[in-house]
């Protein structure tokens, strides 16, 4: 079983991203859970969301305390929130950030897992034209986890976007471009 914890701020779409990831994994025949930890729902307040992905039915219904992977939607959370708490030593953390790799490394100097960075906000602005980093982050975490190949991801996302954006097909291609770029641009620091 793969367990993923998302750290974001209210309004940034961490919940949506976790549900999207559940969707994508479901489409490949996996058993999935996607759920947010609902709090006061304030715009900008730190929040978490979770994913479990497995080949077997998932029975456990608690939050995730020892994630294999952590995704940080907003790099200002690193520090105020112990984003790596309980992380699997063989796991990895993925951060959406425009900071220099050396700065991120310094911020996470006590962390002994692989660190991946993606500037998902930049990709979103350049492709979709708005700061919706979800799509890019989703593609990046899928690459980091090795859940599926780029080809499978593209096919899967296209199906999902066709359904999701049935009423505004013009945003499908920009989102697909964000998927492709994020898959290629995510890198270990």
């Amino acid at each position: 079983m793969i367990e993923i914890r998302w750290h974001g701020r209210g309004g940034q779409g961490a919940k949506t991203a976790s549900l999207l990831l559940a969707d994508v994994a479901f489409n490949t025949g996996k058993y999935i859970q996607g759920f947010p930890e609902y709090g006061p729902e304030r715009m900008g307040a730190p929040l978490t969301a979770y994913n479990r992905i497995d080949d077997e039915p998932i029975r456990i219904h608690s939050n995730i305390y020892e994630p294999n992977y952590v995704v940080v939607v907003d790099d200002t959370l690193v520090g105020p929130v112990d984003v790596c708490k309980g992380i699997d030593p063989n796991g990895a953390i993925l951060i959406n950030s425009s900071l220099e790799p050396s700065v991120i490394k310094e911020k996470l100097k006590d962390v002994n897992v692989k660190i991946y960075v993606i500037d998902a906000s930049k990709i979103a602005l350049e492709t979709i034209g708005a700061n919706f980093p979800n799509t890019a982050l989703l593609a990046a975490i899928i690459k980091v986890t090795g859940l599926m190949s780029k080809e499978d991801l593209e096919k899967n996302m296209l199906d999902s976007f066709k359904h999701k954006f049935a009423k505004k097909p013009e945003v499908i291609e920009p989102n697909m471009e964000a998927v492709r770029r994020a898959y290629d641009e995510v890198k270990e620091v």
């Binding site: 559940a22 479901f26 058993y31 999935i32 859970q33 996607g34 759920f35 609902y38 039915p57 219904h61």
Partner: peptide, 12 residues
């Protein structure tokens, strides 16, 4: 059934 845990969690 359980609020949020079951009501809001997406599962198969």
């Amino acid at each position: 059934y359980d609020g949020f845990i079951t009501s809001h969690s997406v599962e198969n």
